[in-house]
Nucleic acid binder design. Structure first.
Length: 803
RNA sequence: GCCGCGGUGGCGGAAUUGGCAGACGCACAGGAUUCAAAAUCCUGCGAGAGCAAUCUCAUGAGGGUUCGACCCCCUCCCGCGGCACCA
């Protein structure tokens, strides 16, 4: 009796059985070989599960299933990163409420995710919007606060006028909001920050020792942006003030012909003095106007590269170059950023292109102090633009003739400068003036100041508010909710006000992996369980989070280690970024109308076919291209496997060597996440088996295919009358001795071109191979009697005859 | 501008890392089956020449190293990603 392959019935049947048996449950307390297989949890959008999610999760699940068959106790949790502006905006548009909308979306996601046939540990689901989760997010905030890593500060911050909230540095892409692409403007606001910059050096250094995708590490390195340089002070004569600059090129100090301070530099304001007050600066009015205008500009306007540089001289004041002792002019210009280094620079027009352009415009002196060639034996060229490469010093007093790299630190020493390292990374701004997020657990009391909410009072519940629209006035909508805003001070019991901003959603996701194993417990995480399960063994996710989520998670983990709450400082032992699934050569997006709905294919081809096809489109780490017709290929493959399992005979297989080769190939490919070639190997093997199916081969094929297509393999395993589940089978070993074919196809080349292929014994010696080659008729034809100049023998592969 | 990755049939992609270029699959063509279609199965499928055996050319372009190059080196072109007035 032979049934047709009815994927729908098969998949539904096993989904039910697995759920009933709790087939993937691991005992977190007792597991002997714990393996934490993590995937980036999704944001549950109203559009439903995206095929990109399915792609990522399938790749991760295959890895989990593979490890499980290798004998690990695999914990593969799933959850929802459900707070955030996205759902809030959606709710505003639809006239719903984010809470209800989110609950609805999660129900839908859960239903869709269950069709995937993954190992998900649903009893450990995390939902970041649930008080039982965000209670601990708030608790975490308090721990960081106690440790001095969460602080409130007034600073010019990036404000998105469309999202009506401030943004973290990481969320501003080239002066635009990452989410809505609006031009970001600067606002001076008092906000909460996390002190991630304290960890810059460690975040950078640890990259050397963690097993992560190289490109992800590279993106983090770029973002952290280390520069080694020096702090050098320029005295303002007859005053108590000095301008301290940061430079990576102290070797050019003798060429510093003016200094520049950023418009926001506090010393500029100080030197200007109060309005109407007498100042040393002769053109105070002009300077004031310039600074006001500069501060008003958007980030985009200020960083526009093509724009001509502007600035204003602080007339009447000079600074002394500590090397030349020369008095040089002082400028304020917005090409110098307040947020980096000391907010002031020494300008060396000859050796910095930006300074060159500025000096040209304002007719400032330029002195060449680095010569590209050894100056004693060459004349230095006349520059037509800044020379920024290393070279030899000239016009630099006793340092003349020294290579610039060498002179650097000597010069720093000679002027009493200080060697330092600076990073581009900025502190993490976590305040958001929005509704749908975790309330920051802080109370402001007139008497006691800033008071953290006592831990026993957590969670600070996010109130259900009908009007949750952003106000746009630099305040969260929660500020209008009297019952939330007004509270009593935990210290003096007097009346006090709550912080009304919520925290960045990236804070929610910066620690969820710690919560998963401990879900349901009345502590943020159990020490015992955490010691057994963390750090995460394998983390798979998108590259787009390289400098957002992945950096934040590392920072939080490091901070927790220092506070003494966990005993490891890197959260993810291994991280692999997967590629992007595209369609028609383009990223999928609603506006292009090329978004693939996975449900449609779950219906028409089944989850196994969807899983397998997605993995077949290309290397998992590179991404792939979805084609509506392409899925037919794996669908046919599954049908053929179905058919051959029904036809399989209990007889000796003629495919021993191939079986072992396939096991080897599939094992190694899965190990490296090269699922596309693993599947190709399975197809090749099955193409051979199909000719005369022997049970032994079909069984091996089913075991090897199980991680990719869990339902059909389980069904066929049962149909073959095998005991237990195919997923409980041990991953098959291969025997290197059986790998080799009995005959070797020896390639015979003449002048590097293949002219003949002969079958020989695999262990043929070099001498014999040469003899065989020279005897070949075809080779002789090409030789046409000539004596070979040289014969190259590659053992077990080829012979190349050179004439 | 700097850094990184890539460019292979009509398409997605392989190639044990210097050793048979195009595995596997899609699409396409021919055939079988069918009243017919779908599905399925078999065969073919880089380009050019040839009845054929076979030969020539071909991995973005040009050059080089090598017995031998998709792979290594140099120059250039194109695409993607990260950073970017960061001193």
């Amino acid at each position: 009796m032979r049934k047709r392959y009815d994927y729908f019935q098969v998949e539904e049947k096993w989904r039910k059985i697995w759920a009933e048996k709790k087939a993937w449950k691991v005992d977190l307390k007792k597991a002997k070989k714990p393996y934490y297989n993590l995937m980036m949890f999704p944001y549950p959008s109203a559009e439903g599960l995206h095929v990109g999610n399915v792609y990522a999760f399938t790749g991760s699940d295959i890895h989990g299933r593979f490890r499980r068959m290798q004998g690990y106790d695999v914990f593969e949790p799933m959850g929802f990163d459900a707070f955030g502006i996205h759902s809030e905006n959606f709710a505003i548009k639809q006239g719903t409420h984010p809470k209800e909308q989110t609950e609805k979306n999660i129900r839908n996601f859960r239903k869709q995710l269950k069709r995937l046939g993954a190992l998900f540990a649903w009893e450990h689901e995390v939902d970041t919007t649930k008080p039982e989760y965000y209670k601990w997010t708030q608790w975490l905030f308090l721990q960081l606060y106690k440790a001095g890593l969460a602080y409130r500060g007034k600073a010019p911050v990036d404000w998105c006028p469309s999202c009506k909230t401030v943004l973290a540095d990481e969320q501003v892409i080239q002066g635009r909001c990452e989410r809505c692409d609006s031009e970001v403007i600067q606002k001076e606001l008092e906000q909460w920050f996390f002190g991630i910059t304290k960890y810059a050096g460690r975040l950078l250094k640890n990259l050397e020792k963690i097993d992560w995708s190289e490109r992800t590490k590279l993106a983090q390195r770029n973002w952290i942006g280390k520069s080694e340089g020096a702090l050098i002070k320029f005295q303002i004569p007859k005053s108590k003030y000095q301008i301290e600059v940061f430079t990576t090129r102290p070797d050019t100090l003798y060429g510093a012909t003016y200094v520049v301070m950023a418009p926001e530099h506090p010393l500029v304001a100080l030197l200007l003095g109060a309005q109407n007050e007498k100042s040393e600066i002769r053109n105070g009015e002009e300077v004031r106007e310039y600074i006001e205008a500069a501060i008003k500009k958007t980030e985009l306007e200020r960083t526009e590269l093509t724009k001509e540089k502007t600035g204003v001289e602080l007339q009447g004041l000079k600074a002394v170059n500590p090397a030349t002792k020369e008095e040089i002019p002082i400028f304020s210009a917005d090409y110098v950023l307040a947020s980096y280094g000391t907010g002031a620079i020494m300008a060396v027009p000859a050796h910095d292109q930006r300074d060159w352009e500025f000096a040209e415009k304002y007719n400032l002196k330029s002195t060449m102090v680095i010569c590209p060639l050894e100056p004693r034996s060459h004349t230095c060229p006349v520059l037509e633009e800044a020379y920024t490469e290393p070279g030899y010093l000239v016009g630099s007093g006793r340092f003349d003739g020294m290579p610039s790299e060498e002179a650097k630190w000597e010069i720093v020493k000679s002027v009493g400068g200080q060697k330092t390292t600076k990073y581009h990374l900025r502190d993490w701004l976590i305040s958001r003036q929005r509704y749908w997020g975790v309330p920051i657990p802080i109370i402001y009391c007139k008497k006691c100041g800033t008071v953290p909410v006592p831990e026993e009072d957590l969670p600070v519940l996010l109130p259900y508010v009908k009007n949750f629209r952003p106000t746009g006035k630099g305040k969260s909508p929660l500020a209008t909710v009297e019952s939330f805003l007004n509270t009593t001070c935990p210290k003096c019991k007097g009346s006090a006000k709550r912080e009304t901003d919520v925290s960045d959603t990236f804070f929610d996701s910066s620690w969820y992996f710690l919560r998963y194993p401990s879900v349901g417990l009345e502590v943020p995480w159990s020490q015992q369980i955490t010691r057994r399960w963390l750090p995460v063994d394998m983390y798979i996710g998108g590259q787009e989070h390289a400098v957002l989520h992945l950096l934040y998670a590392r920072f939080i983990t490091m901070a927790l280690k220092d506070i003494g709450l966990i005993d490891f400082e890197e959260p993810f032992r291994k991280f692999r970024a997967h590629g992007l699934l595209i369609k028609g050569g383009m990223k999928m997006s609603k506006s292009k109308g090329n978004v693939v709905n996975p449900d449609e294919y779950f219906e028409s081809r089944g989850a196994d076919a969807v899983r397998m096809y997605l993995m077949f489109t290309g290397p998992f780490s590179e991404g792939g291209e979805w084609s509506d017709r392409g899925i037919q290929g794996v669908f046919r493959f599954l049908h053929r496997v179905w058919a051959m399992a029904h036809k399989a005979q209990d007889k000796k297989s003629g495919l021993e060597a191939m079986r072992h080769r396939t096991i080897k190939k599939v094992t190694e490919d899965i190990e490296e996440l090269k699922y596309n070639t693993a599947i190709a190997a399975l197809m090749e093997y099955s193409n051979e088996i199909a000719k005369e199916p022997a049970k032994k081969d079909v069984e091996t094929l089913l075991v090897l295919t199980a991680p990719f297509a869990p339902h059909i393999t389980e069904e066929l395993w049962e149909i073959l009358g095998k005991k237990g589940s195919v997923h409980e089978q041990k991953w098959p070993p291969y025997d290197p001795k059986i790998l080799k074919e009995k005959v070797l196809n020896l390639i015979l080349q003449v002048n590097g071109k293949v002219r003949d292929i002969v079958q020989v014994l695999p262990d043929i010696s070099a001498k014999e191979a040469e003899k065989v080659a020279l005897e070949s008729q075809k080779v002789q034809k090409w030789l046409s009697g000539q004596k070979p100049k040289k014969v190259v023998v590659v053992q077990g592969r080829l012979v190349n005859i050179v004439i």
